[in-house]
Amino acid sequence: MLRLEALRAFVEVADHGNIKDASDRLFRTPSALSMTLKQIEERLGCPLFETDRKSSLTDMGRFLYDQSVILLRDYDRAMERIEAQSKARSGRLRIASVPSVATMLLPGFLQDFIATRPDLDIDLVDTDSTDVRHLLETGQVDLGIAGLPPDLPGLASDPIFRDPFRLVCRSDSRLATQARMPDWADLEGEALILNEAARGLASPGFQRLALGARFSVRNVASLLAMVQAGMGVTLLPALATVNLPASLTARALADPACMRRVSIHWRIGRIPSPVAQLFLRQFAADARLQAGRLGLEPIA
């Protein structure tokens, strides 16, 4: 079997028409290059050059040259792709994220992240925390960004920031205009619209109100439309309330336990790809900075 480096040496000699220039190009001695050519000819059982001057190829030499050029080109391209993937310059990255992070923190970061990686493809799924967990556990995404508990079986996590929940109500409602922060007693008699972000809140006051909720909406746009229509109030993380329409108001709650912890999650027992590892490190650092600027609590 002929080695790739032997074929590369042969192609260089054929391209230059002499051994000396080819040896300079390959940083090898002329004697070593001559030995390589001799070994190829002995392996094939026929000469590759018409004369010792190496200026013209035999028919067999021409055939070997054409095949070697194709083989070396494909090999070099494959090695470039392999190196690009190992250095996190290419590949495919699949991410699932809660909507607030997907709209507020990811766009600017991803723009910079892909700017120097033209061969990187990114699939982003914008969904709630329950679905983020499912997509991670079934291997449909590489990384998940969500407000999931830190000790879920089979998942590892890197915490990014804490995000307090806000009461979202119409701007013309009594809850929007009262001077003090709303507490659970203030919500008695109000129609509470549940959503996946708030469903896991352990506060007894919230759980009592949640028992009487008639609506549960997973899509944030639909959820806000229902609140705008006067169908009730809801709770959303502060990050999800940054760009509310003027007709809606987000109020801080008197209960300090209304808090979510947003983390990046990945599957235990499956080593993330190089680009996933790089994204994890860089986004976690960038998101902590962005969260701090938005008044949230970064987790170091």
Rank of each mutant, 00 (worst) to 15 (best):
L2N: 10
E5N: 12
V11T: 09
V11H: 04
V13A: 03
D15W: 04
G17Y: 08
I19H: 02
A22S: 06
D24I: 10
F27I: 06
T29E: 15
S31N: 12
L33K: 03
S34Q: 11
T36Q: 12
I40W: 00
D52S: 09
D52K: 06
D52T: 03
M60L: 09
R62E: 12
R62H: 09
L64N: 02
S68E: 15
I70Y: 11
R73T: 15
D74Q: 14
I82S: 08
A84E: 15
S86I: 11
G91Q: 04
G91F: 04
R92E: 15
R94Q: 01
P99F: 01
L105N: 07
L106P: 10
F109S: 06
Q111N: 11
D112Q: 10
A115E: 09
R117G: 06
P118A: 03
I122G: 02
L124I: 04
L124D: 02
D126M: 09
D126A: 04
T127I: 00
T127P: 01
D128R: 03
S129V: 00
D131W: 07
R133Y: 07
R133W: 07
T138V: 14
Q140Y: 03
L143K: 00
L152V: 14
L152E: 10
G154Q: 10
L155V: 01
L155A: 03
P159K: 03
I160R: 00
F161T: 00
R162V: 01
L167R: 03
L167F: 04
C169K: 00
D172G: 01
L175A: 02
M181A: 13
D183E: 12
W184L: 14
D186C: 13
L192I: 08
I193W: 06
A197M: 06
A202R: 11
S203H: 02
Q207T: 14
R208Y: 15
R214V: 15
V217T: 03
N219S: 14
V227S: 07
Q228E: 14
A229F: 15
M231I: 07
L235F: 15
L235Y: 10
L236A: 06
P237H: 09
P237L: 06
A238Q: 15
T241I: 14
N243K: 13
S247W: 08
S247P: 05
T249K: 11
L253V: 06
A254W: 11
D255K: 07
M259D: 02
R260H: 08
R267W: 08
I268N: 11
R270E: 14
I271V: 07
I271E: 15
P272T: 09
P272A: 05
Q277P: 02
L278F: 04
F279L: 04
A285W: 09
A287E: 01
L289W: 11
L296D: 12
L296A: 03
E297P: 02
A300T: 10
